[in-house]
Amino acid sequence: MKPGFSAMTVSALTLGFAFLYIPILLLMIFSFNESRLVTVWGGFSFKWYGELFRNRLLLESIWVTLKIALTSATLALVLGTLAAITLVRFVRFRGRTLFSGMIFAPLVMPEVITGLSLLLLFVAVDWDRGFSTVVVAHTTFTTAYVAVVVQSRLLTFDEMLEEAAMDLGATPLRTFFVITLPVIAPALVSGWLLAFTLSLDDLVIASFTTGPGATTLPMRIYSQVRLGITPEINAISTILIAVVALGVITASLIQKRQFARRGGHG
């Protein structure tokens, strides 16, 4: 029995969503504020978006953030997929439980711990902190997310498809690229998008592992906010929200469509 829309459920829903989204909505609205004062509405304007594109430091950090997100998401995709295949296909090997626990630990590990431990590692091996160390750090924690997404797809993958391909003359390697990869491609795309957006808005781990010349956007925003909130920050935050939302929605749509299709023909 499904409950209908009573006054109770409607108000609970409204309050809940208001709690979650009003701060974000306010931020977005004030990004179109003509006034320099953050709390006083001075009329609608795209002024701060224009300012944004004249702020060299912000633009630089956007470029750095995108490069880091693209590189780490791609590395995480490869590593996460390999981990997922190992977990699903090689059911019985020594230390499997330990391996799967270690793959998924970064999901629940506090970011501060991850960041700090990576920093200690980089210091210990005397690795100059900068672009490459942030990429490594982001790859480390987004790999876990990719592994989860790809593993859940592989669990429902019909291994008979691979046998059928080999039976028809395809070598195991060719079977992997022509059958397995295309069939699980939607999971790979959504895993990559997830890793990409996670890297894009990470502040804590990046702060620990970055160095000169590799200031990411969230870090730039954070440091500017400490000097006082400007509507410019609201503008760049609004763009960031839009990009992340787009990524997450695309990822979930791809998974949903794939699920519906598989459900459709049993």
Partner: peptide, 20 residues
């Protein structure tokens, strides 16, 4: 002789058609 070099072909119970 591996499966992909055998002069036999198989029709699977679940059909195993390539969905893509």
């Amino acid at each position: 002789v591996p499966p992909y070099r055998r002069p036999v072909n198989m029709m699977f119970q679940s059909y195993a058609l390539f969905p893509h």
